[in-house]
Amino acid sequence: MSKAPNMPKSWREETKPHKFCPGCGHGLVLKALGQAIDELGIQDRVVFGCDIGCSLLSFDFFNVDSVQTHHGRTTPVVTGVKRARPDRICIAYMGDGGGYAIGSQHLVNAAARNEKITVILANNCNYGMTGGQMAPTSLPGMKTETTPYGRDPEVTGYPTQGPEMVSAITREGAYVARGTVANVRQLKNYIKKALQNQVEGNGFSFVEALSGCPTNWSTNAKDTWAFIEETMPKYFKVGELKAPAKKEE
């Protein structure tokens, strides 16, 4: 096959180039995910669910069985699949709105039940598809369509710390990390560990990926990367928050 160089094997070539905006972070997160699937050799076992919001554009992204669900509801759909087919590797892919706002009860409870699924969440500090409204992850002072004078934490609270929350409510067996599209190699490793955790049947796994939205941020390439690399990590600390203890030999 004449795949472009660097294209993960599990990507579906027929649906490339993908439908995301130029400069969007989703492509990089999905690249990391594709590489992780390839390296683990689980393409034939993966069931991929994507949310509403820009993440829905990934419904035909991979050569894996995929289902696009409703806003916030990917976690329960994928949970339903996993409970019915424990032999499948089930991935829920969503944005910050889907995971931390409209679907937060599902994320919290799937994590609390230690569902053996993997949730991958792209955090770009706003609602992209609906046109750049404030998200749970919008930064203090950040201008969005619904906070035109900047997000005032006194009125709308502070950015949701997703992995920190998930880490706090999960027990042993869970894997929780925050990566960034600014370091795809590290992000891929986190995602790979998350999937490996599911393969081993240890428990819930969750990776947040700091991601960019130049369209709604109205940023050029330089400012987009500055925001991802310098501004976002001030609020969202990159790294592993929780990993299962190494199994004794």
Binding site: R73, T75, V77, R83
Partner: peptide
Amino acid sequence: ISAGFTTCGGVLSGK
């Protein structure tokens, strides 16, 4: 909400 959507997931799995 979750009960309905997990049921969808179960059926999609062929159960």
